[in-house]
């Protein structure tokens, strides 16, 4: 309880500190270069100066924070990836050479590739289907809320939920995991699903698909509503049926949004860590890059060179999407 009070006190102090900074610097600026109530060249000169300085006062704390927590680390990670485990001696590309000869790394790349192939596609597909179906029924919003709900659940919480579903008991005893119970009910024999190499990847992917479908659904549902009525009506008049309208009229108008959903989930997949850590911790050939990176960060006291090298690989995979996002944002800004 005391700890919580400390947290709330710090929070108040932090907010007050920020407010004091903004009000204080602004007050000083107005005192140094007064323009209110003045006329003539001095006032306009002061106004010009304050207008040039004020944006940087507004941006200051945010830029400082972004520089320390995101920009500096990106540069430092690249630098560290070229150094040894303690980050002291320059080793050139040795970490990367090691990486590509390391079986575990190759396994992770392969698994990440599977994840990238399956999860964005499946989540977008289900999201699109659900968005289209719920659009037509009166209780669609309730259905959407329920499917959206896993979004709020942590990856670790979701892992526990699904680990319970995949639970395995020896053949002949009663299965308490839903999946094995179904398998047994239909005459199969139970399996310890998360320990099956190769296939366990898919059992882990299900968790992320379960979480991300709601996100895809919400965005695509809005895009669906944004489709101009006239295009659909014209198709109806031309005698198109429901499926034709969906595939030939609606989908083509939503490509932009589908791409956004797809890339957003792709980024998330590259960073997936919690699910693998909680479900298998990379055992049974289910390792992925983010978990491998975390592992090397602390393995044997921590190998910062190799850890950073793996992080750089993740970053390189993200860069194409980053560029695409920046170009889209820039295009949109021109429109304003």
């Amino acid at each position: 309880m005391q700890q919580l009070l400390f947290a709330i006190a710090t929070m108040a102090a932090g907010v007050l500190g920020c407010a004091a900074y903004f009000f204080g610097t602004n007050w000083i600026l107005d005192k140094l270069f007064p323009s209110k109530g003045l006329t003539g060249p001095v006032a306009s000169r002061n106004l010009r100066i304050t207008n040039a300085i004020r944006p940087w006062l507004f941006l200051g704390p945010a830029m400082f924070s972004l520089a320390i927590y995101l920009i500096y680390p990106v540069i430092a990670s690249v630098w560290l990836s070229l150094h040894d485990r303690a980050g002291e001696n320059f080793v050139g590309l040795n970490n990367f050479v090691w990486m590509f000869n390391d079986g575990e790394f190759r396994q992770s790349i392969y698994n990440n590739f599977l994840w990238l192939l399956v999860v964005p596609a499946a989540a977008t597909f289900f999201g699109l289907i659900i968005a289209a179906l719920t659009d037509r029924i009166w209780w669609g919003n309730i259905a959407k809320t329920l499917i959206f709900m896993p979004m709020a659940i942590s990856f670790v919480g979701a892992s526990v939920i699904w680990k319970f579903i995949y639970d395995y008991r020896a053949e002949g005893t009663e299965q308490i995991g839903l999946l094995n119970a179904l398998v047994v009910y239909f005459g199969g024999s139970p399996e310890a699903w998360v320990t099956l190499p190769f296939w366990n990847n898919f059992f882990l992917m299900v968790i992320l698909i379960w979480i991300q479908t709601g996100f895809a659904m919400v965005i695509l549902s809005a895009a669906l509503r944004g489709i101009p009525e006239e295009t659909v009506e014209a198709a109806v008049i031309d005698g198109a049926n429901g499926l034709q309208i969906f595939f030939k009229i609606m989908i083509p108008q939503m490509w932009g949004t589908i791409a956004v959903v797809w890339t957003t989930i792709t980024i998330l997949v590259l960073k997936v860590f919690d699910i693998v850590l909680a479900m298998t911790n990379g055992q049974w050939q289910s390792q992925v890059l983010a978990n491998l990176m975390f592992d090397w960060m602390f393995r044997g006291g921590g190998d910062f060179g190799r850890g950073a090298a793996i992080a750089v690989i993740i970053m390189v995979l993200v860069i194409p999407i980053m560029i695409w996002n920046i170009r889209n944002a820039a295009k949109e800004m021109e429109g304003h």
């Binding site: 995101l70 990106v74 960073k271 990176m293 950073a308």
Partner: peptide, 9 residues
């Protein structure tokens, strides 16, 4: 930017 880039530095 992946969080992983930030962790070690």
């Amino acid at each position: 930017v992946p969080l992983q880039m930030s962790l070690i530095p």
